[in-house]
């Protein structure tokens, strides 16, 4: 996984609450069996005027000029400013892959849906929770000044504004550690393989019915 330490980038404001993962990456693109290539279809229904299908040449489609990502001043943004409950709905990790593939490294919002929040950390996308009033203030600042950039420092757990303000954010220590180092979760867990086996032995005595083999049950035991 890509580690995250500190990032400075242009901010794009997406001013709606409850942005769901269906909107972030519509279902027709979930048919892909890969993790990459979702960037051109990030927010597909909002971003283009014509209906999109996998396999199209998305560079030739008609963009919706009203959609914020398409406005020239926000091209190349790497920080997404959002409202409450960002990433709600489906568990599709494709939403995180699409944001990353587009170039987004940080999403700032007053709150995130749980699964999306979790998925972000597995891919090196940093979700930053700031109080609703602060986010509101940032929305106004971004709108007021073209080329508005923020710096997000995971080490210090701070967002730095161009005015020199430092906005502290919370993050669980274990998640922060893994993201800073870009650690592979599976490799970390497998370091505890003996403990997993010990748990299984104990559990097999306590709840043996949980250790029935589906395959064996299928074939008549």
């Amino acid at each position: 996984m890509q580690p995250f330490t500190r990032h400075t980038g242009l901010v794009v404001p997406l001013d709606r609450p409850n942005v769901d993962t269906d909107a972030i990456i519509p279902k027709q693109y979930l048919k892909s069996v890969r993790r990459t290539g979702f960037g051109p279809n990030l927010f597909d229904d909002w971003r283009y005027l014509d209906p999109g299908e996998p396999g199209m040449d998305h560079g030739r489609r008609r963009e919706n000029p009203d959609f914020v990502l398409n406005q020239p001043r926000y091209r190349g943004a790497t920080i997404l400013l959002a409202r409450d409950n960002f990433g709600c709905g489906s568990s599709r990790e494709h939403a995180v892959w699409a944001l990353m593939d587009y170039g987004i490294r940080v999403v700032i919002a007053p709150s995130f849906a749980d699964i999306f929040y979790n998925n972000s950390f597995k891919n090196g996308l940093l979700p930053v929770v700031l109080p609703a009033e602060t986010v509101d203030r940032l929305f106004r600042a971004v709108g007021a000044r073209e080329g508005y950039r923020l710096t997000v420092d995971l080490e210090r757990q701070e967002v730095e504004t161009p005015e020199g303000e430092r906005l502290a954010f919370e993050i669980e220590p274990f998640r922060r550690h893994r993201l800073l180092q870009g650690l592979d979760d599976i490799a970390l867990t497998l370091q505890h393989a003996d403990e997993i086996r010990a748990y299984e032995r104990r559990r097999m005595r306590e709840a043996p019915w949980l250790f029935q083999d589906l395959l064996a049950a299928e074939t008549g035991r």
Partner: peptide, 10 residues
């Protein structure tokens, strides 16, 4: 509960 694809792999 639902999980993402990285967690499916995990």
């Amino acid at each position: 509960f639902g999980i993402g694809t990285s967690e499916v792999e995990h």
